[in-house]
């Protein structure tokens, strides 16, 4: 049992540190480790956990908790979640504290202005990559475009847009 927990801790610590640019980038490595290297589950099990992590609200990276749960129950889930988020959160916290000390420094304003196109460009990049990742067909891009336009031009509640998206997905497919 302790062996599994240690393996979970090391796996998710490593994956979280590799996840520059977000959690999605390490999903294939996570699957490989959980299925092939450790044998905690089958590929089908992993895809089910992936689907559950998308079904629940919150960040998709919570698939880490599910892999931990599958490997070693609730303790495994706790270890995996802490390893996935703990060290990187401490890092960001430390960086944010240093950053906060220079709130009014001229160079900080310069860095913020300089990084704005980078961070906003990354938002569009991941949206494009996610759209290309879904299977072909016009329904999903049409829903994305309609949601983007509605949420840009109006103050409609996002939850309503998400619900309509789910309804459209259901209607277009059946």
């Amino acid at each position: 049992m302790t062996g599994v927990l240690l393996k979970l801790a090391l796996l998710f610590l490593g994956l979280s540190l590799l996840a520059v640019g977000g959690g999605n980038s390490v999903i294939p490595a996570m699957q490989h480790a959980a299925v092939t290297t450790q044998g905690w589950m089958t590929d089908k099990d992993f895809l089910d956990l992936f689907a559950i992590s998308r079904l629940a609200p919150g960040p998709g990276s919570l698939i880490a908790s599910l892999v931990g749960q599958k490997a070693a129950g609730l303790t495994g889930a706790a270890v995996a979640t802490l390893a996935m988020y703990g060290p990187t959160c401490l890092l960001v916290h430390a960086a944010a504290r240093v950053w906060g000390r220079y709130r009014d420094a001229g160079w900080r304003v310069w860095v913020e202005r300089g990084l704005a196109p980078v961070s906003i460009g990354l938002i569009f990049a991941s949206a494009i990559a996610l759209m290309r990742g879904t299977e072909t067909g016009l329904a999903a891009p049409a829903i994305t475009a309609a949601a983007a336009i509605a949420l840009t031009l109006s103050e409609i509640h996002p939850l309503l847009v998400l619900a309509l998206g789910g309804l459209c997905g259901y209607l277009f497919r059946f």
């Binding site: 895809l47 089910d48 689907a51 559950i52 998308r54 079904l55 704005a116 906003i120 938002i123 569009f124 991941s126 949206a127 996610l130 759209m131 879904t134 329904a139 999903a140 891009p141 829903i143 994305t144 475009a145 309609a146 949601a147 983007a148 336009i149 509605a150 949420l151 840009t152 996002p158 847009v161 998400l162 619900a163 309509l164 998206g165 789910g166 309804l167 459209c168 997905g169 259901y170 277009f172 497919r173 059946f174």
Partner: peptide, 29 residues
């Protein structure tokens, strides 16, 4: 969970709308 009828297309729709939400947020920023 993936075998429950309707789950897959509903999730695809919600996922597509969530991408749209990100795009709108990008445009606003």
């Amino acid at each position: 969970i993936r075998d429950i009828p309707g789950v897959e297309p509903v999730m695809t729709g919600i996922g597509a709308a969530a991408i749209g939400m990100n795009v709108a947020n990008g445009v606003r920023m």
